[in-house]
Design a protein around this nucleic acid. Sequence first.
DNA 1: GTGAAAGCGCTAACAG
DNA 2: CTGTTAGCGCTTTCAC
Lengths: 336, 336
Amino acid sequence: MPVTIKDVAREAGVSVSTVSRVLNNSKPVSSEIRARVLAAVNKLNFQPNSLARSLVLKKTRLIGVLVPDIANPFFPVAIAGIEEIANMYGYNILLFNTFGQIEKELQYLNILKEKQVDGIIKMSTQVTEKHEEYFESTSIPMVVTSNCTEREDVPCVVIDDVRAAYDATSYLISLGHKRIGMISGPLDDSAGRDRFLGYQQAMLEHKLNIDFNLLKQGNFKVDSGKKAMEEILRTVAREELPTAIFAANDEMAIGAIGVLLDNGLRVPEDISVMGFDDIFIAPVFRPALTTVKQPIYDIGAVAARKLVKLIEGEKLSETKTVLPYHIIERNSCRRI
Amino acid sequence: MPVTIKDVAREAGVSVSTVSRVLNNSKPVSSEIRARVLAAVNKLNFQPNSLARSLVLKKTRLIGVLVPDIANPFFPVAIAGIEEIANMYGYNILLFNTFGQIEKELQYLNILKEKQVDGIIKMSTQVTEKHEEYFESTSIPMVVTSNCTEREDVPCVVIDDVRAAYDATSYLISLGHKRIGMISGPLDDSAGRDRFLGYQQAMLEHKLNIDFNLLKQGNFKVDSGKKAMEEILRTVAREELPTAIFAANDEMAIGAIGVLLDNGLRVPEDISVMGFDDIFIAPVFRPALTTVKQPIYDIGAVAARKLVKLIEGEKLSETKTVLPYHIIERNSCRRI
DNA sequence: GTGAAAGCGCTAACAG
DNA sequence: CTGTTAGCGCTTTCAC
């Protein structure tokens, strides 16, 4: 039913190869014939079938993107960055939400292979043995973000989460805080683990005691931040409360602040709270969130740029790109 | 290089059609041969090339999704709904960010056609003549959200934005407010237009004056809410200030509240602010946002369900699905 | 410059 | 039940 290259050829009175040539500018075609072909294309409103094209070219101009949780405000921004660059180079995005489930991710990785995507961007979460197998078994270029593996051959774009968390914690310490709690992310997630490591490192290095009662693990969502804070409030005596809380992301920080406020505690007067990411809400939240700003959009954009290079066989100037972060001082932390 | 169905056939000592049959369970195959084929598939780690498959089947199991702005927290949640249902039925998502630009959207629509997607979900923004042409020219099933057209044949899933905005405004009125301003969305966006209409309707019906100085247009982003509020503050005398502001979405409401707070005005004591959408931040924001809750995830899920039905030739029980909304009373609006 | 024909990897008649 | 074969719509040698 749809019009094919054959129809165009017939209409223009030429061969299909000629049509293909003018469509792709792959070989010189006399201007007279070119015009006839173009006219036919227009008249029939022909649109090439990219499946057929891809099948012979072995190129789909498709990039698979795996995110753990698209509803987490971090990822849409990164995806926007990916999309923008990908589009610029003529690639489109096949999106998969893994819910952080490793089996789902593996399953999707297989689908991506079947769909013959030209490349894959895998955002955060862990890299398991199964992944390693996958890396071995396929030659689809892949770049990962927020999580460099030990494998030298898998390019990645990250920030230095450990150092960022170290700096954030040190910032809190420089403000005079000594009892600093942390609401961490899941420890099987690299960002979760690294940020916890950074916190630990800073505490240790400053000879500050880590009170395990002030340590809670969340899942990067608002609710888990709430729960963590509630638990701290419930289990820790008033006078033992931390003077500062470092949350592994802004969402959890916001959840924690809500609970604090609801319990008549003031932020930052009674307790300082520091976030991580600097999502859109951080500057407008009250108190405006003191946080670690990640170049979220750029993470996506750089990953996409890297992947495109990889796909097109260019050399990467560096396989691991570390992007800068900044501590943004706002109003949720105070000097004591 | 990659292993094809031919390789499997050779390995198993059967014909390609037999391999195809066991892979698709399309025809009975003796269990002995089936086992041999499966063994070969495993041994060679064969993965069918879905391009070739799609080319002959004329079915890609791909759904194109067009969103105006993936960074707007509304859409990721809707996308999650789409993804979940689509996946359940074996479809994957091709994502496009249109930035609200109509030409970009049209361009993407063409790409989707070339990519032979089985269906399209188009979220919000307008439906122009060009779109109409597109609808005419293609037979790809499409469902639109947040924006029903006059075309009876294009299924959609929406909430009644006019009535929701009407109810929201009436709610404010019922609280005793008379000077109610509005920060609307772009009027060429259906949600923007309808919500403004609903506001207008409620005001008129309650014989309340609409002060044009209290009307500002934003673009659904936090910053535009800020700007709108700043402008109102700058141009309107203190004693003429509205007692309530209705923002066309939560982001703008949050932006507005920030400006109010920064200017020493209290929310809701001095000015009430009502939002729309109930994005994740609404309940945790301070003051917790009084808003109109849309079933965001469901909008995506229902749209996807509808589209799948359409693709698979099932009858739709209704072409237009109107989902319920609810006014959520929290702390950003007060009775005066 | 242009056309004929092979083939990308798979499915689905059509025979047997 | 199983194999042979003809395409799906396109690109690309290879001749002319």
